[in-house]
Measured scan of single mutants.
Amino acid sequence: MASQGTKRSYEQMETDGERQNATEIRASVGKMIDGIGRFYIQMCTELKLSDYEGRLIQNSLTIERMVLSAFDERRNKYLEEHPSAGKDPKKTGGPIYKRVDRKWMRELVLYDKEEIRRIWRQANNGDDATAGLTHMMIWHSNLNDTTYQRTRALVRTGMDPRMCSLMQGSTLPRRSGAAGAAVKGVGTMVMELIRMIKRGINDRNFWRGENGRKTRSAYERMCNILKGKFQTAAQRAMMDQVRESRNPGNAEIEDLIFLARSALILRGSVAHKSCLPACVYGPAVASGYDFEKEGYSLVGIDPFKLLQNSQVYSLIRPNENPAHKSQLVWMACNSAAFEDLRVLSFIRGTKVSPRGKLSTRGVQIASNENMDAMESSTLELRSRYWAIRTRSGGNTNQQRASAGQISVQPAFSVQRNLPFDKPTIMAAFTGNTEGRTSDMRAEIIRMMEGAKPEEMSFQGRGVFELSDERAANPIVPSFDMSNEGSYFFGDNAEEYDN
């Protein structure tokens, strides 16, 4: 993207840094990872977990959730003011799984939030270390993106479920800051804005008074975040219109849905970061690795190297396929839920299948599930090659597409044709070009129609051997075009429920 120079890199967003050079960025990201790792080690000690239990991804998720809940100030305040039966607002906890007599047992633990905050700050040299908290939120978000298709949420806001490739980060909490905003897809931002506008339509006082002023500035800020994701002048001009509207209503909703559809071809720039579970960072720190000293990046080879040398386990339900569970977590670790499966298959070195073909449910185990038949197995999170994460949407291309997802959002900077089903997408653009945004709409449609099938995206960008740390010898991959490109292809993934 041309304006790259004016933006802070995501590592800076990730670490609240002012302008830093590459070495400083690597050190501050490393410091953040160190903090998460030290916190995780301490929690495993508190909970008396064995090494194996500490490497269980379900335990990692519970521990991450506990610290996120302990620092969720708004919710904590709300819980104190609106006490609900049987919930102690000062405590947080969740299921911890232990191996007892050759069987997995679930144990519900409860801790004072104050105590968890103390352990977290102690692991982070006394700081609140917001960057580390956001990092864990993005890992949870990436896992949700890989596990669930947001059909219901899309339909509720009037969008087409086939636009799911635009929904990265749709389950990120509001408090995820600049680093969170960077990884949100165009569809996620559109959905947040539509929800806001709908509230304004239904509630006369939404934009009024002292609160209304705050609401208005939040609305304009979200519009600017979305505008910054678009790469064409016409899309940005249309966002200006939406932002400046005196009284946002149905016309703005129409414009936003139009823009979301246009992003299936004229893709937005959305950041991709490899955020790993805390149970990967903990053992690495415990083994003596100093992330701050060595430096770390979320968008280069580092996460690949770390996963190459990590042992992570997962509980497996009786009829689940461990290899499929591994694929789910591998995609989440690489922030690749909406990437082209052919690119992923090449990088991973084994075939990556669409969601609907995987015999696996989510990673988390519900409290009512029976533990008797639970097994555990090693997650295979290694890769054959590594590639640089991208934040450009890439230019655009036609490809055989599917009944489910009709476009992709690249996660890796790797040369390819970008699949999208042009006739299906263009069919949504018939007729409606009147109104105050008509010239911009016409211009956007013209650009979409001009998108050429034979153009290559990320020209000359390749993948790298894991021994090639400096990215000196790019390998331009070859793809098996007979395979499906979309992950949520004609899909039956479970729906995400809060």
Rank of each mutant, 00 (worst) to 15 (best):
M447L: 06
Q235L: 01
E454A: 15
R65L: 06
V476W: 12
R441T: 07
A233R: 01
H140R: 09
Q122Y: 09
E14M: 07
T390C: 10
D372S: 01
E107V: 14
R384I: 14
W139Q: 08
S413C: 04
A278M: 05
V329G: 06
A27I: 01
E114H: 02
Y496D: 13
D112H: 04
E210S: 02
V285K: 04
V312R: 14
R117N: 04
G485Y: 14
A286F: 09
V242Y: 10
R221K: 14
E81R: 00
K87R: 06
E24C: 06
L276Y: 12
G187V: 13
R38G: 14
A260F: 10
S486W: 10
S377W: 15
P277T: 03
R348Y: 14
N144G: 11
S486A: 12
K325A: 06
S478G: 12
E115I: 06
N21P: 14
V285E: 05
M167H: 06
S482A: 10
Q58G: 02
W139H: 10
P453T: 02
D497N: 06
A284L: 01
R99L: 00
Y219P: 10
F412N: 12
I36K: 07
D112Y: 03
M222Q: 09
S478Y: 09
T433W: 13
N368R: 00
N124D: 14
N124Y: 03
S297E: 10
V155I: 12
S383L: 12
I365W: 08
D203I: 07
D290H: 03
P410K: 10
T215F: 14
I96E: 03
T151L: 10
R156Q: 13
I57Q: 08
V100C: 05
L47I: 03
N498T: 06
N205R: 09
G209Q: 05
D255S: 11
S217P: 14
T350C: 01
D203M: 10
G356E: 12
E339F: 06
S9R: 03
I444D: 09
I116G: 01
C44P: 04
D372Q: 15
T437D: 15
E46V: 12
Y296C: 08
N492G: 13
G268V: 15
R267N: 13
V67D: 10
L154Y: 04
P95A: 01
D439Q: 09
R416V: 05
